[in-house]
């Protein structure tokens, strides 16, 4: 498609093929062009002074950096730390950039800029070398007798294959803790466990929630309990978002036949996204939509937390709730299904 555009030219070309080489000749390395500093000693001198000056500025920067370190002590305020950081960094940059700019300017303006040409050599070794190498290997194989002694080969290979176990077994068996992956199924929620505000831990009275409220909820626990890794790991599964809708806005929830999992327009859903486990928490009270800030899965809190947009596939699991004698919200039970992202044996 390309070379038909010069049809008349090609006719001529066909005629002249004999007279012209097939390809153009390499014109060779372009002639060296002298720089100002090559021809004008004054200019070279000027550049030399300039380079020395830039190195000098670098020295000043380095010394200034030390001075700043001792002189500008951060006073504990944001502005103080900012000033110290900025001064230390800028003086450091002056010292570094000074060296860089001076060295490069030196190379560009004063060092010879005549191009050199080096030959390349083929990377492959010569046939003779290869022959010797192959011979060496063959001699080695012969010396070891590995080709003849089959049992020895098998034994050596087995030993080599097995020895990593001595290292891998202790490592792998310990590295995963107790390997009890069924823990994914259970959370701290249980019958009559009170719902409490996160992070204060105050229990929640149903009457205190106004319509349009959203509350971030944890299982009630003492402050001491909350100061442990066990708590953080359990909290990672137990966090719940509680919202109160107008009861007539609540189209559906996940309660099975004959049970009521919500209470007077109050619904509680796991906050852990069924996509990859981000806390889903952007509740839009007018649309009743709950949006995940990580990947924008959107759930409809008025309709059983069904997915209305985004990469999540399943609704957020609902926490069955009710109120106790004192009017506090409590769980009826744990979640009916594992919370959070899907995994291979989730339904087993």
């Amino acid at each position: 498609m390309s070379d038909n555009q010069n049809t008349p030219g090609q006719d001529v070309a066909a005629r002249d093929t004999a007279a012209h080489p097939e390809r153009f000749e390499d014109p060779g390395v372009p002639a060296h062009r002298s720089r100002l500093t090559d021809v004008d000693p004054q200019a070279a001198k000027r550049n030399e002074r300039l380079i020395a000056l830039i190195f000098g500025i670098s020295c000043v920067g380095a010394i200034a950096s030390v001075v700043v370190y001792f002189a500008v002590r951060p006073d504990g305020t944001t502005a103080g730390t900012r000033l110290s950081t900025a001064l230390l960094g800028v003086t450091m940059a002056i010292s570094l950039l000074g060296i860089g700019i001076a060295a490069i300017h030196w190379a560009k303006s004063l060092m010879s800029d005549h191009e050199h040409v080096d030959e390349r050599h083929t990377l492959a070794s010569s046939p003779e070398v290869r022959q010797v190498a192959v011979q060496h290997l063959a001699d080695g194989v012969e010396d070891s007798g590995i080709a003849r002694r089959g049992v020895l080969k098998g034994a050596a290979v087995s030993a080599l294959a097995l020895f990593p176990l001595t290292f891998a077994v202790p490592l792998i068996s310990s590295v995963g803790g107790d390997w009890n992956v069924s823990k994914f199924r259970h959370t701290l929620w249980e019958r009559n466990k009170r719902l409490a505000y996160d992070p204060t831990g105050r229990p929640i009275r149903a009457a205190d929630l106004t319509v349009g409220s959203a509350a971030h909820v944890i299982p009630e626990a003492s402050q001491e309990e909350m100061q442990s890794h066990e708590w953080i790991t359990e909290k990672a599964k137990a966090v719940v978002l509680l919202v109160r809708l107008n009861p007539e806005d609540l189209r559906s929830d996940q309660s099975p036949e004959g049970e009521t999992w919500s209470y007077d327009g109050i619904v509680a859903y796991s906050k852990i996204c069924t996509h990859v486990g981000c806390p889903v928490a952007l509740y839009e009270q007018q649309t009743h939509h709950l949006l995940c800030p990580c990947h924008q899965s959107t759930f409809d809190m008025a309709d059983g937390a069904k997915v209305v947009f985004g990469p999540a596939n399943r609704p957020l699991p609902q926490l069955p709730i009710t109120v106790d004698d004192e009017g506090y919200l409590v769980a009826q039970d744990d979640f009916a299904e594992p919370i959070g992202p899907s995994y291979w044996e989730r339904l087993k």
Binding site: I204, L209, T210, S213, A214, V243, E284, Q285, Q286
Partner: peptide, 13 residues
């Protein structure tokens, strides 16, 4: 007051 999309955070919460 929870204007528009924003949920209400009343004095109990």
């Amino acid at each position: 007051t929870g204007p528009q999309s924003m949920p209400v955070f009343n004095d109990a919460n």
